[in-house]
């Protein structure tokens, strides 16, 4: 059922979009890659599970994932980026890989390397529209993800913080001269970037009931693909890129072969970098 696949694709894609947004925000501000970004997704997923296991309701799990992943992102900024702010862009990038190894290992200590699952939400509610069925879980995911996307878009476009982030992305030096605190802008950007990835991770565990401490690598790569498709540094581009990959993935699984899923996605990634590295929607500020 094609329409059903579209719904599924958009649901999945909305979580990818949240990861991609964070990726692109950090890249915009620092012009550097955070290769531990996918691990923030993983941390969010496990935070959600841990809190739910304590018996907390879903919203509490969401907030916890948001906060913990955000804080871990700030820790990454403080240990991998800030001390290496004058080094080449390669050094922090490699540091974040090491930080990712650390996070994976820490989470494995508490949850084991075997798949963990989100406790049953106990909801069997389903919305049926003609031939389409949308479960409560899908609605929660879609509402949360799109709510956050609209929220971050407004934050970036309308608030003082958003102006500071955009100014820093355009020209960090000038922004700093105009009194925008570069360190504060960077830290808050990391927090938001991690929080969004964490929520995405938590939401994903609701559908794909099983997660391992190693899911972060793939999620980070997918987020990167979405970011590149949308155009580096372009917020809305990242959202569209995320949704597009979600759709490609579900369509591939439905009509082609699930085994080829990642090959297809990475082939698209490679093709974009070679043929259209600026992405579908190049950011206005060229760097």
């Amino acid at each position: 059922m094609f329409e059903q696949q579209v719904i599924n694709g958009i649901t999945l894609g909305s979580t990818y979009a949240l990861v991609a947004i964070g990726y692109t925000l950090v890249l915009g501000v620092l012009n550097k890659l955070n290769l531990a970004h996918g691990e923030l997704f993983m941390v969010g997923a496990f935070t959600g599970i841990a809190v739910a296991r304590l018996g907390a309701p879903l919203p509490v799990s969401l907030v916890a994932a948001f906060a913990v992943s955000g804080l871990v992102a700030v820790a990454i900024e403080r240990s991998c980026f800030y001390p290496l702010r004058n080094a080449s862009f390669l050094s922090p990038m490699l540091s974040t890989i090491a930080f990712g190894i650390l996070l994976q290992n820490l989470v494995s200590q508490f949850f084991g390397s075997d798949p963990s699952r989100f406790p049953d939400t106990g909801s069997s509610f389903q919305l049926t529209l003609g031939t389409l069925t949308v479960s409560a879980i899908h609605i929660v995911i879609l509402a949360t993800a799109f709510g956050l996307m609209i929220g971050i878009d407004l934050l970036i476009r309308k608030t003082r913080w958003g102006i500071a982030v955009r100014a820093t992305s355009d020209d960090a030096e000038t922004a700093a001269q105009q009194g925008m605190h570069p360190s504060r802008v960077t830290m808050t950007t990391f927090f938001v970037s991690g929080a969004l990835a964490g929520v995405a991770g938590m939401l994903t565990t609701l559908v794909y009931s099983q997660v391992t401490p190693h899911i972060g690598i793939r999620q980070g790569l997918i987020g990167m693909v979405a970011m590149v498709i949308g155009g580096l540094g372009n917020l809305r581009g990242a959202m569209i890129g995320g949704l597009a990959i979600g759709l490609v993935e579900t369509m591939n699984d439905a009509y082609f072969s699930a085994g080829y899923r990642d090959l297809v996605i990475f082939a698209i990634f490679f093709a974009f970098l070679i043929v259209k590295p600026e992405g579908l929607f190049p950011a206005h500020h060229s760097r």
Partner: peptide, 28 residues
């Protein structure tokens, strides 16, 4: 030939993509 036309972060991502394409190719 094509990947080396990329610079900085783009080159890093281009090689990363290459590695992942090869890996998923052999997976299948």
């Amino acid at each position: 030939l094509p990947v080396l036309r990329l610079q900085g972060i783009y080159f890093v991502m281009g090689t990363l993509a290459f590695g992942e394409v090869v890996r998923t190719f052999f997976q299948n």
